[in-house]
């Protein structure tokens, strides 16, 4: 039972869904999605943090939420990226076609992850081994995104974007798991409608991104 599920001031909207048999956690997580998505859009348009698009950081945020404890989530994420990097160097001289190459990557990453899980068990980190399978599968598949960026934009950019993705996902995790946020959504579920005007504003905003103030700093002296 969730702590907020028992408050007597439950919003009628929530009540309706609960009575239809929708689990409370599912309800909250689904409503969390537009908030995290808006947060990612804000970081992209106003701050200038790119990450791997909107889908990857979003899905990783939820993968983090689904693992028991964010540290295990981060450990799995880093393992995937590290394996992806190492494999890139190993596979480079073979000059393989794209899909087979990604398939090999996925194989190796999967083996790597099994190793990490076993290692966790060895050190009595049972939390790691008991992470449910879906977040693990989700994180394995981000290796494709990583490889695609490696090919398109090079290793350096791929690593930067991976770090940005990790950063956004960690922020997203803390937003989505903050008690204040859960409480707010429980009490006023309609609040997520506010993401619409916010996103319309973001979609029309043509100002400089925060990162661009740094990028173009040199020009400032000459304005």
């Amino acid at each position: 039972m969730h702590p907020y599920q028992q408050t007597d001031i439950l919003n009628p909207i929530i009540n309706f869904f609960l009575q239809k048999g929708v689990p409370f956690d599912t309800f909250i997580l689904i409503l969390m999605l537009p908030i995290i998505a808006t947060f990612i859009a804000f970081l992209r348009q106003v701050v200038g943090i790119k990450a791997f698009g909107i889908y990857t950081p979003l899905i990783i945020t939820f993968a983090f939420l689904a693992t028991n404890g964010i540290k295990y989530g981060i450990a799995i994420f880093l393992t995937v990226i590290l394996a992806g990097m190492i494999m890139r160097f190993i596979l480079k001289p073979f000059r393989l076609l794209y899909l087979p190459r990604v398939a090999i990557m996925l194989t190796i990453v999967a083996i790597f992850l099994l190793g990490i899980l076993a290692l966790g068990g060895n050190f009595r980190r049972t939390g790691l081994a008991s992470v449910s399978i879906f977040p693990i599968l989700i994180m394995i598949t981000i290796v494709e995104k990583f490889v695609a960026v490696q090919i398109e934009k090079g290793d350096r950019i791929a690593i930067i974007l991976a770090i940005e993705t990790l950063f956004i996902s960690i922020c997203g995790y803390f937003i989505a798991s903050s008690l204040w946020m859960i409480k707010t959504i429980t009490l006023f579920p309609w609040i997520i409608l506010f993401t619409l005007p916010i996103n319309i504003f973001l979609g029309k905003w043509t100002g400089l991104r925060l990162s661009e103030y740094f990028r173009f700093k040199e020009i400032f002296k000459h304005l």
Binding site: L208, F216, I219, L223
Partner: peptide, 20 residues
Amino acid sequence: FLYKKARHQILGMNSRNLDF
């Protein structure tokens, strides 16, 4: 003030995509 000025003179990603 400098940043405000920069906003009107420098073309950023958002403006490039949306305005041009």
